[in-house]
Design a protein around this nucleic acid. Structure first.
Lengths: 133, 133
DNA sequence: CGGCATCCAGTACGATACTG
DNA sequence: CAGTATCGTACTGGATGCCG
């Protein structure tokens, strides 16, 4: 069929557009950075290298699945290094790369902002909720 | 029933724990900040006030629903102001508050980081993918 | 124009159990 | 210890249509 319905055209346009968006550098990284676990892992590693089990303990409430997934993504992006020591039992250390460290500093700044302005945000929320009773 | 199965106890513990986590200031804001649309709205507004329709045009691919949802969340947190001009047709302007502006600066820093280091990340990805053929 | 309510599909995430 | 595999679901977010 060479002809397309309007709905199909829209669908096609949407698909093309999504592909375009995904190609955008900033959006690619934005997706990564706006992952909750990424921030937490970065923060956890910012104080130094950690083992897998250390991370799972330090990062409250993370499932093995998500932890592995997150670490793999960060490793792929060159933000952390994964070092396997083939002893018995196996030992795996994760450490921030220089690149990862620079990003972690930014995240720390954000965290600091959150801590500094939390009471202002909280107050704003209370007021907003009160006004919209 | 006063007694609980092990599964129920675990469930209970998980719920309590979630509640605890949600009470943590940093986590509350982390959830907000790790929202993709929040970053984009903040970025869009950092150059000045904008109308609803301007935002929906500038922020590529956002649905009305998410845009409204995001704006409401930001308004509630005192990060943006919503000004309604009761003309016909209605006109609604959104603008960053001072608080929102300070956060937007942080997000800009992150965006700058992304643009600066994108090629490094991209190179890391290619290498990683090549090694794991 | 600037929303809000409804419905629905995709998927991301957690829980669980098993392996080298 | 450090994961992988599988399954179920709850929630996210898009599409649509109606209102002030």
């Amino acid at each position: 069929m060479a002809t397309m319905t309007a709905a199909q055209k829209r669908e096609q346009a949407r698909t093309d557009y999504d592909a375009f968006l995904r190609a955008c550098p900033t959006n690619q990284l934005l997706d990564r950075l706006s992952d909750k676990w990424v921030s937490l892992v970065l923060a956890a590693l910012s104080t130094g290298p950690m083992r897998y089990s250390d991370l799972s303990r330090k990062i409250a409430g993370v499932s093995p699945k998500m932890l592995t997934q997150t670490l793999r993504a960060l490793e792929r992006d060159g933000l952390v290094t994964r070092t396997v020591t083939p002893s018995v039992p196996v030992r795996v250390d994760y450490e921030l790369t220089e690149l990862g460290g620079s990003l972690a500093q930014l995240m720390t700044a954000v965290k600091t902002w959150a801590e500094t302005h939390f009471d202002e945000v909280h107050a704003a929320r209370e007021q907003y909720d009160a006004e919209n009773a």
